[in-house]
Simulated assay, not measured.
Amino acid sequence: MSPVLSPEEKDDVLLACRYGDLPDVEQFVAQFGPDSLNDIRDDLGNTVLHMVCANGHIDVLDYLLKIVSPSLLSVQNDAKSTALHWAAMNSHLEIAQKLVKHPQGPGIDLIDIKNDAGRSPLGEAENNGWEEGAKWFVEVMNLDDEGKEEDELKPAEGATDIEVEIQDADGQIAKMKIASPSSAK
């Protein structure tokens, strides 16, 4: 059972995580035990992982991932954002990779969790213009069409080529032609 912590003790460890103060986090764990970290939340539902991941403190994250419950990786705050959302919002690639690759964690399923804004961590990366992170999320995501019948993946009879025009934010237009499977043969 975790000890009963005062609001000040909770705030102190959350601030230590926010500012990347590993010695203070270690001292807290020595005093109260690692399990006490699992239940700590701020007024907005943020965990110690939210604080560390938002601010890119890899050394503190490495320490915490060894001692906190793996379920903490998928905990959502009041805005339904996970620590991975916060890493994506702040362009912390190594942090995002450690969260997704954590052996006991939910893995790539973390990338599919949506927040109140309806965005996944990939969506947050794209929304913030973080191309490197968005590219990495797409590379590791599970894009398989599991459970789909083979017939569902066949093109419709009489399918034709599609031409698409896309305008970027600078007004530049890109044209693209998507060939139907029947015309690609």
Rank of each mutant, 00 (worst) to 15 (best):
S2L: 13
S2Q: 12
P3D: 10
P3R: 04
P7G: 07
E8G: 00
E8V: 05
E9D: 13
K10H: 00
L15G: 11
R18K: 14
G20K: 00
G20D: 01
D21P: 01
L22S: 02
P23D: 00
E26Y: 01
Q27P: 01
Q31P: 06
G33P: 13
D35E: 12
D35G: 12
I40A: 01
R41S: 00
R41C: 01
L44N: 05
L44S: 03
V48D: 08
V48I: 05
H50K: 10
H50S: 13
M51H: 11
I58W: 12
I58Q: 13
I58M: 13
L61F: 11
D62A: 13
D62T: 15
Y63F: 15
K66C: 08
V68F: 06
V68P: 08
V68Q: 04
S74Y: 09
N77V: 12
D78M: 14
T82H: 01
L84M: 03
L84C: 03
H85A: 05
W86K: 06
A87G: 03
M89E: 11
N90D: 09
N90Y: 09
H92A: 06
I95L: 05
I95A: 05
Q97A: 02
K98A: 02
L99W: 00
K101V: 08
P103T: 00
Q104I: 02
Q104S: 12
G105M: 05
P106Y: 10
I108F: 11
D109A: 10
L110D: 02
I111L: 13
I111Y: 09
I111A: 09
D116L: 03
G118M: 00
P121D: 06
E126V: 15
W130K: 04
K135S: 15
F137S: 09
E139R: 11
M141Q: 06
M141I: 04
L143Q: 15
L143I: 10
L143V: 10
D145W: 12
A156R: 05
E157L: 04
G158S: 02
T160G: 14
D168P: 11
G171I: 01
Q172C: 12
I173V: 15
I173E: 11
K175Q: 06
M176P: 02
K177C: 01
I178F: 13
S180K: 11
S183F: 07
A184G: 11
K185H: 04
